[in-house]
Write a protein that binds this DNA or RNA. Structure first.
Lengths: 147, 147
DNA sequence: GGAAGTAGGCACCTGAAGGTGCGTAACGCC
DNA sequence: GGCGTTACGCACCTTCAGGTGCCTACTTCC
């Protein structure tokens, strides 16, 4: 019955570890920003919207309309944009305000929490811009050795 | 033939944006660390391995054996651990050294690049630990309003 | 009067991430 | 002589994030 004991201990350790991960705030954050469009939306709301996303001018976070975001993040589907905005609002990272004009307009804006999150994401961006070339170079030489 | 022109412009804008994303170093980095086990392995290699992962004691990055990592990250499958380690080695974030003892032992160790990446990840961790509770609280009140 | 913009909702579909299980080959322990 | 460890490789299977397409009502532009 007691199947090999050692295996059982491993199963239990795994269960505990999974429970630990489910609680881990860092993991939750990673799941959040790993979402394909989350960081893009955050960056867009932080930019002035004038040009390319990625020109993270750290100016005043400006409220933006749904259609404006849709145009700025040209690659996003309407479904995903809506879904992403909803989830960000849910987490208190952005606010959604409806303006009852004749065709209703909706504006989204970063909250303070959202701005602070964007700050750490810019940290990632900084690392990426200075070190990602090294990574790609390593990757190339590694592949060359294998092939 | 020219189907509604405006739609075509949108399609083209999307194509350009997709191309831009494919080039973006920040996105590549995100794809990298979004990998479920990458951050865990990085953190494990940085810890002293004595206890819970997450106790990110920033001591000397210590080389670790495959089996040691497997035990520390109790939730990881052997397949994923191997896959993750390979990809990290490929990117020059860790080194893999084979010691030809009687059952071969393999040790992994963070490179300088890997350590520097771990630093920015600790930035994420910091934000998560101070702000994630707020996020969860916002989420709860949002859900309460909807229900 | 068709095209376009306003902000989405709903349903279906696919690709890929990640998990599970099995096998190895040589050795140690009890 | 069967269980355990060492560091994986291979094949199958499930799940789901994310994409696509079609729908709404109302208005305005050309």
């Amino acid at each position: 019955m007691t199947t090999t004991t050692a295996a059982r201990k491993r199963v239990q350790a795994k269960a505990e570890y999974d429970a630990f991960l489910a609680q881990c705030p860092s993991r939750k954050l990673l799941d959040r920003i790993a979402d394909k469009w989350v960081t893009l939306v955050l960056a867009a709301l932080r930019s002035d919207g004038s040009h390319r996303v990625g020109a993270d001018c750290a100016g005043e976070p400006r409220p933006m309309r749904y259609s404006e975001l849709s145009r700025l993040l040209a690659g996003v589907s309407q479904k995903m944009l809506t879904q992403t905005l909803r989830s960000l609002e849910r987490d208190g990272l952005i606010t959604r305000t409806v303006v009852p004009t004749v065709p209703v307009t909706v504006t989204y804006e970063l909250t303070d929490l959202g701005v602070s999150l964007h700050e750490v994401i810019r940290g990632l961006k900084g690392w990426a811009e200075t070190h990602m070339d090294d990574v790609l170079a390593n990757r190339a030489t590694y592949d060359a050795q294998v092939a």
